[in-house]
Design a protein around this nucleic acid. Structure first.
Lengths: 149, 149
DNA sequence: GTGAATAGTTCAACAGTTTAACTAACTTTA
DNA sequence: TAAAGTTAGTTAAACTGTTGAACTATTCAC
């Protein structure tokens, strides 16, 4: 019984993720990759952040972030500014161009997601998102446990 | 209202996917990448399949599949066999070693998923998976529509 | 039998990732 | 306060995954 649920979950979560990623890619990928879009999104929402913070949020090494930010800074979407109080720290912010690019991509993604979630009953989708959010918390706790080992 | 739901969904689906991928990676990645695991999984469940089929299921170009299969065949996990009726077709099957590797990884992933989904009420998780499965169908339909354009 | 379609490969170019070694700056402590 | 340790970020090599275009080999359609 549990085994069957596990298998259904493993199957479906992979499928949904793959399909969603492909659909989003099709909306934005002439200009942006999916990861670049999420980086822009994070910086836009936080106003400014550091590489270390991004590495923690995205669960990757800092050197992976450096590589991504390099490409995006070369294209003029992101700016690096050194903190004058602690000169080790580099603040990342969007340039005007980066901000425009993010807003354009975000609009397309919102239209896509809207066209999908309006196909559900509102109670169904809110319940779904609630469970999803609970899952995120459990996964975060799980990760901390495993890190602690 | 809808805007808020959309934003919650975009945020949470990305977070959950990232966290889940990292946890799975931590279970299996000394031997396998996540994509390699899903390829092994698909071939194991179907018994044998073709590159074209994998490319369709994984939503990538056939050349991406060729590259992945090359690496996995080099390591002795996957076997290529030409179809004698239609010599264009190459059947992909697991070697004994590939099968063992898959089973070992699958066991670890099942334990991980089990430890997570048992933290939910059974009705909550079945409802969740049902909506997830419905979502997969909608995404597949959506993709077909966009392809048709 | 010729032209079109299909299955798969190869290659160049790129994005993203890890690990290890590194620089620079700040903090602790003896 | 000088030495040792920590923190933020970068660099470089090596790898996985991806696309797009050009290609080989085979089969199908008329």
């Amino acid at each position: 019984m549990i085994q069957e649920l596990i298998d259904r979950y493993v199957t479906i979560s992979f499928q949904v993720h793959k399909k969603a990623e492909t659909l989003i890619k099709r909306q934005i990928s002439n200009e942006l990759t999916n990861d670049q879009h999420y980086i822009l999104r994070y910086i836009q929402q936080s106003g400014s952040c550091t590489s270390t913070e991004l590495a923690a949020v995205f669960d990757v090494n800092k050197s992976a972030i450096t590589a991504i930010i390099n490409r995006m800074a070369d294209r003029g979407w992101i700016q690096r500014t050194r903190d004058e109080n602690d000169r080790r720290i580099v603040f990342l912010t969007l340039t005007e161009e980066g901000n425009q690019l993010y807003l354009k991509a975000q609009e397309k993604i919102h239209l896509l997601v809207e066209s999908i979630i309006t196909q559900f009953e509102e109670t169904e989708i809110t319940t779904f998102i609630q469970t999803f959010e609970k899952l995120a918390q459990i996964l975060a706790r799980k990760k901390d446990e495993e890190m602690g080992e």
